[in-house]
Write a protein that binds this DNA or RNA. Structure first.
Lengths: 292, 292
DNA sequence: GAATCAAGATCGGATAATCCGATATGTCCG
DNA sequence: CGGACATATCGGATTATCCGATCTTGATTC
């Protein structure tokens, strides 16, 4: 249990004003209080602490050594205190304490963190709770547990604005058998090679029927990339994450029949909160929607 | 000008107690106040901020989101506040805010900072104002402007306890003409070579008469050492600072007639304050006096 | 050195904050 | 539904704080 403070912030703030204004009367004027009130507050503070903080030398009020040392410690605390109160006022004005943000792992990280950085400049008090999702759609997460999400766009939802379009390219490690075929492989040929897919948790064993190929699924984008890098599998990987590998020719792009690239559309979704969306959430949504 | 806080620390401390004790009544018991007082304080706080901080859910008091966020910010401030008050109490009890310490540059730095480190553990609130002195004695600094000093011991003062004895050795850079003499040089021979002395400010041109040798004086120990390192001069340097140079044979010890070493005795001096010396000063003095 | 000025301390009285004890209101549990 | 618990609220006493006015003191002026 913590002891109760004997002095009040207000008293210290008054003392501070006295020093900064250069006198009791001036401080009173600044604080819109009577001079006697200022005098009383300072006297009360010194009484509470049992030590002199201020001295009248001539017609000037000067801090004692103890006063200088203590006021020096106190001033930042006063300021922090005021900030907390500002925070409270912001919260009272409908501001929120934190934003639960769900972002698909495919969303480019530089873009994400650029948005978060700018957000924290504008709303330094709003905490971010970030969850990385792997290929989730609105169907997977309820309307609870998040405020804002960047998710794979469902084909059904037409009028949702897309904010990003992640390009996937089929690649394999240099030297992988697929990289040495002279012509595009046919379906059955392709099915002989192990493929890796980036997959969330919930879809487990459904797709086996219509797809005879051998597929491993990985929970994270990084694991999938690493599996391809090691030559274990081939797979469709986000191009923005393997640029370096392609340039260094550690990975080679595969020329498949259906075009070289696939695209995963990502959209921004707000939780359907009945109260109007908080300006902070709105702002973060705008930042995320901005192209890089 | 900083706005006046609308809430008091006490109110937040009460809120904190409510949460930590698990209820209004328990908090009241812990705080030795009535339950209604606790209730009033919390209600008042919420009123001042214009936002709900706590909610009665069932028969349990729970923080709201805003309450959790704000109390989280507040608790460290409350603790810091109490620390400041403890500091005030310490000052009121005769503790001092800072110690003005004067230390001769010859005093080994590791020993100095070891003492200061241990001191700050015991007296974290007492600031140190360190001034490095170069070969000063009590005669040079008045009895004011310092609380504690490590100075060159004057021969006159007999019964002052010595706390350190700095060994000086005469050295020159390897290859310096003095290092190549076969026999100890005579006075006139020696006088031909430039010597560096570590010297404070105040003695200016007095000593020229009885010493025909060429002498440069330097204000800092480091400058003197560097001058010898560069081969500019020879000189008597503190052995603890040139060990590495001697081992690496960048510097060579000179075998002079009057023995290879000189010793500078350092003693501890307290300012003659009429009130009994503060325990913090006393303690720091003891630490400095301890041999390494 | 007396008058004057400036600045803080102190006093008296009004007002508001805070305290306590008691009681009302609300929730959970059997 | 009633008892145990937990908080809110009320009434009344106490205290803190505020203001305006006045006193005290140190510096300045003539």
């Amino acid at each position: 249990m913590s002891r109760m403070p004997r002095s009040t912030i207000e008293q210290w703030a008054v003392l501070r004003a006295v020093i900064e204004a250069g006198g009791f009367a001036q401080a009173a004027s600044v604080l819109h209080r009577s001079q006697s009130s200022v005098s009383y507050a300072v006297a009360r503070l010194q009484e509470a602490l049992g030590i002199g903080l201020i001295e009248i030398r001539g017609r000037r009020a000067v801090l004692t050594e103890a006063g200088a040392a203590l006021l020096g410690d106190t001033i930042p605390l006063i300021d922090e205190w005021c900030e907390v109160e500002d925070h409270a006022k912001a919260l009272a004005g409908g501001e929120i304490a934190h934003i639960r943000l769900v972002v698909d792992a495919l969303f480019p990280k530089p873009r994400l963190f650029r948005a978060l950085k700018r957000f924290s400049q504008r709303y330094p008090r709003v905490d971010i709770r970030l969850a990385e999702a792997v290929r989730l759609t609105m169907a997977d997460i309820g309307h609870r547990n998040f405020d804002l999400a960047v998710l794979v766009a469902e084909p059904a939802a037409r009028n949702i604005a897309l904010i990003a379009d992640v390009e996937l390219v089929a690649v394999a490690r240099d030297g992988h058998p697929l990289t040495q075929l002279r012509r595009p492989p046919t379906g059955p040929t392709l099915a002989r090679y192990l493929r890796v897919e980036i997959q969330g948790w919930d879809l487990e064993e459904e797709r086996l029927q219509d797809d005879p190929s051998k597929v491993w699924s990985m929970n994270t984008v990084e694991a999938a990339i690493e599996a391809v890098r090691q030559g274990l599998c081939y797979g469709w990987l986000p191009s923005h994450l393997i640029e370096a590998d392609l340039r260094a020719q550690r990975l080679v792009q595969l020329d498949f029949v259906a075009g070289k690239t696939r695209h995963i559309p990502l959209c921004l979704r707000y939780a359907n909160q009945s109260p109007p969306i908080s300006p902070a959430i709105e702002y973060l949504g705008q930042l995320l929607a901005e192209p890089v």
